[in-house]
């Protein structure tokens, strides 16, 4: 039983990194497909579209930072805490990344015809980024209490 609990602790340490990477891969793929489609329909501004497609890549970075913060010797006492903080923060990052990809795709699709709304159309993606930052910061804060 102790071995299982310790294994869960390791899962918790690596989960933010793995789930954050999944988030970035899916999010960038969704936004990237939109930018490729928009390039077919527009004559300029390709760089902007590619730039937006890279927005969801931040979630992989958050995941890596949380992983390093949680990384410590796993014991039966701290495994539960590591598992809870790691898996839940990873899940939060994953959903934020996937949905930010969709928000970026919508922004690209809208701004390809109305370049003047380019900045405003990024607001939903920025708000989702804010939620991801909440999950990231409070994972760091709460991990300080794990022995």
């Amino acid at each position: 039983m102790t071995d299982f609990v310790i294994a869960m602790g390791w899962v918790g340490i690596f989960a933010p990194m793995a789930l954050g990477t999944i988030a970035s891969a899916i999010g960038c793929s969704i936004a990237g497909q939109a930018s490729i489609g928009a390039m077919l329909e527009t004559e300029s501004g390709y760089g902007r579209f590619v730039g937006i497609s890279a927005f969801p890549s931040t979630f992989a970075i958050y995941g890596i930072v949380i992983m390093f913060t949680l990384n410590r010797a796993v014991t039966a006492e701290n495994a539960g805490g590591l598992f809870g903080v790691g898996v839940l923060s990873g899940l939060a990052l994953m959903y934020c990344g996937m949905w930010q990809g969709r928000a970026c795709a919508a922004a690209i699709n809208a701004s390809k015809e109305k370049p003047e709304i380019f900045g405003l159309s990024l607001a939903p993606a920025a708000i989702i980024e804010g939620f991801g930052v909440f999950a990231f910061v409070f994972a760091l804060v709460i991990s300080a209490g794990i022995a």
Binding site: Q33, S35, G37, A105, N109, E113
Partner: peptide, 18 residues
Amino acid sequence: DPDAYIALVSSLPSSERL
């Protein structure tokens, strides 16, 4: 699939413009 045709839809001019 909600993301099945992202590139295709993005490559079309908006339907309002039609």
